[in-house]
Design a binder for these strands. Sequence first.
RNA 1: GGUGCUAUCGUCUAGCGGUUAGGACAAAAGAUUCUCAAUCUUUAAACCGGGGUUCGAUUCCCCGUAGCACUACCA
Length: 513
Amino acid sequence: MNKKVRVRFAPSPTGALHIGGVRTALYNYLFARQHGGDMLLRIEDTDSSRFVPGAEEYIIESLRWLGIEIDEGIGVESELNTHGPYRQSERREIYHKYVSELLESGNAYIAFDTPEELEQKRLEIKNFQYDATTRNQMRNSLVMSKQEVDKLIADGAKYVVRFKVEPNEEVVVDDLIRGEVRINSSIIDDKVIYKSSDDLPTYHLANIVDDHLMEISHVIRGEEWLPSAPLHVLMYRAFGWEQSMPKFAHLPLLLKPDGNGKLSKRDGDRLGFPVFPLEFHDEKTGVVSSGYRESGYYPEAVINFLALLGWHATGDKEIYSMDDLIKEFSLERVSKSGAKFDYEKGKWFNHQYLMNRDDSVIASEFKPILDAHLSEEGVECKLTLEQIVHIVGLLKERVNFVSELWEQSNYFFVAPKEYDEKSLKKRWKEDSKSQMRELLSVLEKQDDWSASNLDTVVMSWIAEKGYGVGLVMNAFRICLVGAARGPHIWEITDILGKEETIRRVKSALDVLP
RNA sequence: GGUGCUAUCGUCUAGCGGUUAGGACAAAAGAUUCUCAAUCUUUAAACCGGGGUUCGAUUCCCCGUAGCACUACCA
């Protein structure tokens, strides 16, 4: 009775993988790993009209980047795939068999109503539903003779197969997160489970058949599926599979950061954050959507952030590695209510992971970004890798992303071309110019360029002259950085070196009033 | 309209009958510093409403309200 844990992530290749889908995949993965089970990837491409080329590869690459490993299915070496094929469009024969089975057992019937006819019905009758109350007035095999049906099919009439829902039955869905959900079968319509137009089943049939055949033990999916879960229970029952039916867990939705409704791609565009793990190039529309990877996120941070959007352990711990999550995750502790997507907190998570990374590792991540900026500036990098590592250590605490390191550190590589107006207004006073001239001659005399020596010499010079420390140091900072920002001044002079420091003070004296 | 799900600071959440209702993000203030940031400290900030059950409800039940989801030959 206790089946091996086998879960599946079953996206549709209709575009980029949405961040909510990523979280669903993550929860499935965590659950599988925790129970020593299997994580399958299945592609639900039963809607041929919505197929987007490249979407499948995109999904695989996204999961790989995030560290969500697939044990079986799409993107996995074939010898491990014992329950394939894993693309629903390649499982037509299988579905044929089960559609026939339902037809023969009387749990399904053939319907010839065209989309136009149905639309007309919906117009005529308010709240029209194709079910026990209306199916006898429609054009289907329930009201037609077998000869009539066969002839229509032989003549090439398009038809669908509908699942026949018996009315007035209580259906109970046992959900691991929400408990027992009860509904009356009368509110369920006779869902289309197969369409002859493209010879493919719809989601509902394919989903039940595949989950059964693939021996899925737990269906962990978004809350949008909760309303159709009773139908699925009915279908398992119709097939006689109710005893081995998987357990359900319906996850709360990811909501818009502001306002109401579920998170959509538009929200990301509107509010300026990615809703996709990877940058996505839509071949059909030519639209490029930003991704977390390209925005400079670490996959660990995305995982950590997403894991906590809808799940939380007892206690105040917030930083979780994938291994931590695998140990501590539980479906019982998944929230029941939707979670607004708080992008700011996502940045904070990335900051945490950045802070805990070795400076040398960050430096190697920063190097290509740095080189790109430098070549854009037409400048050679005069600093050693060791110095870059040092700079990274100095500045990483003030950024959320590696890419932001450039704007924080550019003055180490390129002398200021202009001076920040605000800083000048606040920190560059009447005396500044003459003080900088004096400072210049003090600095020129120094053979010992160490931070400690410079500090001693300059401070005593300031004290001797009776200048304001803040005034002198800030003016000096403006000369070197071009603005009133950056780390401790002797860190800057240390990296710049004597020659460059003096050069910068001189050129500042040339331009500044 | 119908059906279902949900409801603690602005946000993510802890709490599983008795708490000064805790933490984090964001916000504000202070400390520190040559600047900016970081950091540290502090502050402000919540149990949707009404009935029950109970000695006692944020917690359990019911109703209301609100939000969300679903209501396709899409998933």
